[in-house]
Design a protein around this nucleic acid. Sequence first.
DNA 1: ACGCGGATTGTGAACGTTCACAGAAGGCCG
DNA 2: CGGCCTTCTGTGAACGTTCACAATCCGCGT
Lengths: 344, 344
Amino acid sequence: MAARPTMKDVAKAAGVSLMTVSRVVAGEAGVAPQTAARVEEAIRGLGYQRNDIARNLRRKAQDSRTIGLVVDDLANPFFSALARSVEDEAYRRGFLVLVGSTNDDPRRERDVVSAFSARQVDGLVLVPTGGNRAFFRAQMTRGVKVVCVDRPATGLDVDCIAVDNRAGTATAVRHLLDRGHTRIAYLGDRQEIWTQNERFVGYTEAITKARLEVDPVLIRHGLRGHRQAAAAIGEMMAGPNPPTAFFSGNDLITLGAVEAGASRRFGLVGFDDFVLADKLDPPISVVSQDPAALGRTAAQLLFGRIDGDDAAPRSVVLATRFIDRGSGGMAAGMAAGSTPVRGG
Amino acid sequence: MAARPTMKDVAKAAGVSLMTVSRVVAGEAGVAPQTAARVEEAIRGLGYQRNDIARNLRRKAQDSRTIGLVVDDLANPFFSALARSVEDEAYRRGFLVLVGSTNDDPRRERDVVSAFSARQVDGLVLVPTGGNRAFFRAQMTRGVKVVCVDRPATGLDVDCIAVDNRAGTATAVRHLLDRGHTRIAYLGDRQEIWTQNERFVGYTEAITKARLEVDPVLIRHGLRGHRQAAAAIGEMMAGPNPPTAFFSGNDLITLGAVEAGASRRFGLVGFDDFVLADKLDPPISVVSQDPAALGRTAAQLLFGRIDGDDAAPRSVVLATRFIDRGSGGMAAGMAAGSTPVRGG
DNA sequence: ACGCGGATTGTGAACGTTCACAGAAGGCCG
DNA sequence: CGGCCTTCTGTGAACGTTCACAATCCGCGT
């Protein structure tokens, strides 16, 4: 219950001045060993711990040694892996990490970012929502460095680390095309999310390049979570003019597809690798990216900026890796030609 | 580049005193609407944002509206789900969350906790490592509330939220016994981790109660991650006197068991449910706990403490749920009797 | 005896904010 | 018209620390 002891208390206990305590705590040279010992004694006796908030306030010139990490959803394995590697990188440098989830809600993003900024974070690793980011500009020029990861932020000219979503998706779709599929469905999360739109573009490009048409019936956006995905896929499979294969735009949707049993009777390739993908029947082929590498790269770039690198904003594109596990094949009984059976 | 504007700057721009700005920013009543408008104007013009660090320093009597969250590994789905729900609870109350992973390393735990404490967190949700926690005592009495989650901390008399690990494990083992297994292996993470030891105790109790002997050959502790688990299980399966079933002490180990193919030819029940457990062949039976509920409960308890509840430390035990998906059965070709074949 | 340099320690101000209180208008009442 | 209350605004100190500089002490050369 007793209030925390301050340097003043320590100073009194040790019979020295406040400044001497400060010096000892900061480990500065120029304090007589004897005095230092007395101070350390008092520190132990009182259980004193320096108040880093007050400290950072005074030495304003420097940094607060705290960064903020803002992701869509911390519970999502992709983001939690990313978060972990950002945190590791921060720990190595003696920085603390404030964390926040946005749930892809621009308002919550604004809340979180401005709360972080009010806490004087030195930098921000940001997985931006699709919203408007005008409010950001103000802090931008005021020393808070920002690095976007996974997606760029519209209207914010900062570093960004992401993978090549179009190319990755195109590879996946080509894989399905090569296996004889001609009716390939696209299942994505909200199109406002940059990655999702990129993947959709990759999909349409690949389809178009194969001289096929993009059938609106086969396109579903806005699938948020595996539940919704499974439901949508179920409908599509049971519908009048079903696809022969599915491309799913993220791991949760792929999960939904597996839950709905899509991989048993249809081709399926998903974006994002996931645990046990190789142990399913059939094992699921995926476009894999490395969230830990994304996080690590983002953190390194951010700390570079904090250390003073003020070159023009950089855009880092990491490659994806296609992992063929067999789920993209054409099963017996699927429509094999380019003219699907109608109303089957 | 320009330094952040302060209240002083705003005051000058609006032609009022510092205190008036403070009042406007804090939304206090008693400022003439006209004056307030002028101040708001200046705030917008300068892009001013209050420095919450300085603020919290001055109004020391109150709290910093920040809590710390310390988990074993943020990348682990169990902890990330827990983290997410703690964060949600904090967001609802306008608190920020500092996050740190310990990797089950007591030294890192100490680093992180004391850095958090130096940052004046109001409370701590802690998944403690197995280490000594004497250093904690000092801050304990100094207003930092602590709630342990998942495991109690040895030598720290605080609130703790956990599930009934012994009972959950005993149920799982009985399930295996009921299906005719008599050689049931135990696979756990480090025994110093409280949950792991509890589960081990639950295992031995169930085995003993069934009038069987705990065979040291069938016990493996210290399996850290699915890789190590898979290797250990592989050895055991190929060994001279293999078990007929495995109990695995956490999700990662269960994953390792699946990877090693244990569920195909042996009984398998794991602690912790995991994504797609029901889609595997065979689907895996598990003892399930709800990490989000753990996190939520812990956060609520912590905020209760922060709000002044100073009753004696409470210990909340949540129940587990056994989900029978079939993987605990006795496959054809397994030793069925109570006398296992030796040196087979 | 005096002054000088180096080592050690102390002093006052400052960081950006809020608290406690004091001052300045203006209105109302007797 | 004086007094007093109300409403609004400003002043000085404080939170816990560090910065810049001043003060003290000691030994030593001249």
